[in-house]
């Protein structure tokens, strides 16, 4: 079943009479239990696409196109309804976990405040539920973690908490915007494994945005390659990793191979 379908999504930036095209006619679709990798170099428009999609851009940006989320026309929804859909049907994981939590709020306060808007539970039930959520992302000492302030926890830990929040209301779609960029390799592996289990359960589709081709190949079923706001290549992830069809894709993969190759060479010396 298709969760998210995007057709002809364009983003324009209006500055007085000038109109700049930032994203041009992007289209893709995600099914339940499927992971789509949105890849490209920095500044290619990956995050812009996501923000445009969710309607988070400032009014000076103009977003056009058709977005169907869970069989509903997303662009036509009222802002208040959009917010509710965003909370219930979309889970978000962002790239800088260290800054994504309010520094003055303890984790439990923060999670409870977020949850109680959309789930009515008594105090003790809420606490138990939060502990179960944290267990779901392999945080065993949930009681301790809940009492901490964000600056007392590591980036990997916070990233897992963010995944727990994203999964809490069992969304149909998870958007992960470079979730592995700001954390160390060990935490990266854990985050990838978590996303793999989520994918394996088959309840949610994942839109995975990254510039790290290694991470993408571990997770994504299909990819969309962006370059300067345009789709350069679309297809199965395996096919792309083996033999990219576009010249830009080839270039990108070669870069990766070259860097990998050099590393290999220095190690062998």
């Amino acid at each position: 079943m298709t969760i998210l379908e995007v057709n002809n999504l364009s983003v324009h930036f209006k500055n007085g009479k000038k109109k700049m095209c930032l994203i041009q006619n992007i289209g893709f679709s995600i099914r339940r239990g499927e992971c789509l990798g949105l890849i490209g170099e920095s500044g290619s428009g990956k995050s812009m696409t996501m923000k445009g999609l969710l309607g988070l851009l400032e009014p000076s940006f103009q977003v056009t196109g058709q977005v169907v989320l869970n069989q509903k026309d997303w662009m036509a929804q009222k802002p208040s309804l959009k917010r509710e859909i965003m909370a219930k049907e979309i889970g978000i994981v962002l790239q800088n976990p260290m800054n994504s939590f309010d520094p003055l709020m303890r984790i439990d306060r923060q999670m409870k405040d977020y949850m109680k808007h959309y789930k009515k539970l008594s105090r003790s039930q809420m606490h138990q539920w939060l502990l179960r959520l944290l267990e779901g992302v392999n945080i065993k000492q949930g009681d301790e973690v809940l009492k901490k302030y964000p600056h007392q926890l590591s980036g990997g830990m916070l990233q897992r908490i963010m995944i727990a929040i994203a999964m809490a209301l069992e969304p149909a779609l998870i958007i992960a915007d470079e979730p592995t960029t700001a954390i160390d390799t060990k935490s990266q592996k854990e985050v990838i494994q978590l996303l793999q289990t989520i994918k394996a359960k088959g309840q949610a589709g994942i839109l995975f945005i990254s510039h790290d081709l290694g991470v993408v190949s571990a997770l994504a079923d299909s990819i969309v390659l962006l370059h300067q706001g345009k789709v350069v290549e679309k297809g199965l992830c395996q096919d792309f990793m083996k033999a990219p069809a576009s010249s830009y894709g080839k270039e990108l993969l070669e870069c990766k191979l070259k860097i990998g190759g050099e590393n290999h060479a220095t190690r062998s010396c």
Binding site: L54, L56, R83, K88, S100, D102, P103, D113
Partner: peptide, 20 residues
């Protein structure tokens, strides 16, 4: 700041963001 954007993205109302 990222935490305000995050809060907005997971569907918190404007009044909540301002207050909390």
């Amino acid at each position: 700041s990222p935490f305000v954007i995050y809060s907005k993205m997971i569907g918190m109302p404007t009044l909540f963001i301002l207050r909390k």
